[in-house]
Design a protein around this nucleic acid. Structure first.
Lengths: 334, 334
DNA sequence: TTGTAAGCGTTATCAC
DNA sequence: GTGATAACGCTTACAA
């Protein structure tokens, strides 16, 4: 690949003059400029941003460290981040960590090595202490979804406590008295919030004695396992509250295999929508988190922090969740 | 952020000795090594890969330039690429171009500026000529989905011609005689293939006179527009063949709004699955492309090319497509 | 086993 | 308006 030196030689000038044309950093004679531009075009010269960043500081790269891009919740967040980044002239390095704290830590290292100007991350409970590796190097960090105990962290999250509460209230209003919860790992902040909301809603309705929580991973396998344990341990409840969409899918799979139908035999509601499925078949009742906005707001917050536009105290942005009522829940027959 | 020099000073050695410890590039006295490692830990030193890459060549970064990460087809491909990249110690810069050739060209520039070691791209017909900007700089390039006329390009794609053919044959076997196609832009290779397959299947069945093609964008809006035009221009066919999943979703939306039901009033089949929807409700009959494998194979091919493990001729990998029969298609009543 | 010098491609600083 | 020089952080020669 040609360098600025090649361009300079071809145009009969010094490299710095080419640099001035590229960056408009100083006036250049119109004729000289034309010669340089011709040389750039002729050589297909593209400036080396590595060298530039080394000299200049700033890579205009941000690292987005999340769970799994295949989950539409995260891919939509990723899209929100990328669009916002793009609008500010930044680019995004994508990092799928699959809920593995070790993989997350590796990616943190990569982000630092590559001199990312900022990082957006979903903190994993087992890896809280690794986050300090980012901030201690002075790299701006925005968390998604999950505050970190004892850490002053800019954060963007949805109000999943309120969403979960609304969802369980809705089930109660439909007449359900026996509602089991299929939770994610309770050391996750979001799972904790959703468990609290579930318990609160049941208690307020005088149903504290029917609290029934199955905890497993935040994915399809977790949902399957939880439901299998449930079926082995107790009679089928009249409604299920799944802590996310993948748990719900896992649960449906097992229900179906066991010969149960949703909502005829059991109602089902969850956190997180499945937007495409909804377009084909509006089925799953859910509390939808505004994924795209979460991503966009996280990136915007990061850029504000990087630009020094924020007071030193950490900022927390909480976006509302919307209840979407669909066919997967039915009123209880009287 | 501390530099190798800071570590060297703290350990009382020269920077090169630190480098040797970091890279195991030469033997270092055990005691010296211990001192250096202590200094690295104490300073939280992370090597600057920009400087490293500048000296060394090679960034271990690949650019993945695709349409839209929100489409599960592309997010699954992205995941395949990232997993393979990870296994080889590479990282992925994600670039959503939304079918805009201008945006694609911008990202090509970014990939070159950032000195990406390789690029994986979905070629857009309006931007074919931009691809030469990558290869002419000697940067390895792998195309997804779409060969480029007149360009020797390593390529990974699914056999969507065979998939489309199978799908239309299936509709014919169900007794459909009036099958309309909702196509993507016909200058796209994949759309061309699917149109050819559709026409061939109808011709072979003696149905050439009922060929009916509506062409629009490869997304939900495109599907909506095509179906509105269809409804305005002709009676509802007995079956619809959509060139991808998003077109199918757009079509369903409009059908539903017009009071038609799938499959009662019209059967519907498409290319590309909706994996999560299928788990909840196995509805959409489709020819599923192996998205994850497409991504993984593309990355593997790129790495082989980068390692010089391939003959100079371009390699083309074509993966099979699988027909999945579900409820959205019904036999025609006799 | 360790160190010195030079250079990767760029730009800030200071001349002319 | 233009150019020489040095420096960003690192590693490859080549010494010692």
């Amino acid at each position: 690949m040609p360098t600025i030196r090649d361009v300079a030689v071809r145009a009969g000038v010094a490299p710095i003059t080419v640099s001035r044309v590229l960056n408009n950093s100083a006036p250049v004679n119109a004729e000289t400029r034309a010669r340089i531009e011709a040389a750039i075009a002729a050589l297909n010269y593209v400036p080396n941003s590595l060298a530039r960043s080394l000299r200049f500081k700033g890579t205009r790269l941000i690292a987005l460290i999340l769970v799994d891009i295949i989950n539409p919740f995260w891919s939509t967040i990723a899209r929100g981040v990328e669009d916002a980044a793009n609008a500010h002239g930044f680019h995004v390095m994508l990092c799928n960590v699959d809920e593995s704290a070790a993989k997350q830590n590796d990616y943190i290292t990569v982000a630092l090595q590559k001199q990312a100007d900022g990082v957006i991350i979903l903190p994993l409970p087992e890896g809280y202490q690794n986050l300090a590796r980012i901030t201690s190097q002075g790299v701006p960090l925005v968390g998604l979804d999950c505050p970190v105990p004892g850490m002053a962290l800019d954060l963007v999250r949805a109000d999943s406590r309120a969403g979960a509460y609304e969802l369980v209230r809705y089930l109660i209003e439909l007449g359900h008295r026996d509602i089991a919860m299929l939770s994610g790992p309770s050391d996750y902040f979001t799972a904790g919030q959703r468990i609290e909301a579930y318990c609160q809603a049941l208690q307020e309705a005088g149903l504290a004695s029917s609290i029934s929580i199955y905890e497993d991973e935040y994915n399809m396998t977790g949902g399957e396992r939880s439901l299998r344990r449930l079926l082995a341990e107790r009679p089928l409840p009249s409604a299920l509250f799944a802590a996310n969409n993948f748990i719900a899918i896992g649960a449906i799979t097992v229900l179906r295999a066991a010969g149960y139908r949703v909502p005829d035999d059991v109602s089902l509601a969850c956190i997180d929508d499945l937007p495409l499925s909804a377009a084909i078949d509006p089925f799953l009742t859910c509390a939808a988190q505004p994924a795209y906005d979460l991503g966009r707001e996280a990136a915007e917050l990061l850029f504000k922090r990087m630009a020094g536009l924020l007071p030193p105290e950490p900022v927390e942005i909480v976006l509302p969740v919307s209840l979407i009522k669909r066919r997967s829940c039915r009123p209880v027959a009287a």
